[in-house]
């Protein structure tokens, strides 16, 4: 069970004021259970305390430890070193977001696009539908699936070429509001995604859904938004609603 082996970690480094980023290589002894996050914490503790990375919950619930591990967007906290092929692990920050230092990207632009989508955080819980809620609780609720990790934005080829693109996470959040408004202004949210840099910008590479660690399926959400908007824009539907479908009720 405790079969240990030594793995080379090639870690992307960058510090503000330096001209170019570089890689540092560290040897780390791992067991079958060691995660990439634990290995990076070890490097920070033993080799280089200046190594910058983001982490918080350690169980794929906070979304801070998203990074590219051998080129693939993953959460470091649930990626075991043993499950990665090869003797060398290259760790790089997420793409398509500005780098603050080492493995840390600036989430400002991400949240600036996410925030106008009404920031859904609590939703109706669909688990155990047969369960009766206790007295004093109207309906079982739970935290939303999206953990705002940014993996989808990093892997998205459109986000790579259009900095104004709202991106998979924000669009998926918008679709959640359409599905379960919880008092939000749905027509307003739809109007915000019905733009050239909104849901119509997607090129359906579906990488977002492939890398999402949290069952959000942003690709399907973007297509669902398109479907909703197309139905709204049908001429006979517009007439029925009396004017612009986006007009807040």
């Amino acid at each position: 069970m405790t079969e240990q082996r030594t793995v080379q970690f090639r870690v992307f480094r960058y510090k503000q004021g330096r001209e170019r980023p570089w890689y540092d290589t560290f040897d780390v002894t791992v067991t079958p259970r060691t995660t990439v996050l634990e290995a990076l914490q070890f490097i920070r503790r033993v080799h280089d305390p200046s190594l910058m990375l983001r982490h918080s919950c350690h169980h794929a619930s906070c979304g801070t430890c998203g990074m590219r591990i051998n080129g693939q967007e993953r959460l470091a906290c649930i990626t075991r070193v043993h499950d990665i092929a090869g003797e060398r692990v290259t760790v790089e920050p997420l793409a398509n977001l500005p780098i603050i230092g080492d493995l840390v990207v600036d989430m400002k632009a991400f949240y600036a696009k996410f925030t106008p989508m009404a920031m859904p955080l609590i939703r109706h819980s669909e688990f155990l539908p047969e369960a009766e809620p206790p007295e004093g609780v109207d309906t079982y609720t739970r935290l939303e699936n999206c953990i705002e990790c940014g993996l989808c934005v990093s892997v998205c080829p459109v986000a790579a070429s259009d900095p104004l693109y709202l991106g998979p996470a924000a669009l998926a959040a918008a679709w959640r509001v359409v599905q379960e408004p919880r008092g939000q202004n749905v027509p307003e949210i739809l109007a915000q995604v019905d733009t050239a840099h909104g849901c119509w910008r997607c090129h359906i590479a579906m990488e977002c859904s492939a890398v999402c660690p949290s069952h959000v399926d942003p690709g399907a959400a973007i297509m669902a938004l398109r479907g909703t908007l197309i139905r709204q824009h049908l001429p006979w539907r517009r007439k029925q609603q009396g004017g612009d479908a986006h007009e807040p009720r």
Binding site: Q72, A95, P157, V158, S161, I204
Partner: peptide, 24 residues
């Protein structure tokens, strides 16, 4: 081991083929 510079990218970002799935 320090100092291996990250090479400058020679292709557009959408063409980065690492870690891509079938749909990508």
């Amino acid at each position: 081991n320090r100092g291996e510079l990250v090479p400058r990218r020679r292709w557009p970002a959408w063409f980065d083929v690492r870690g891509r799935h079938v749909s990508g």
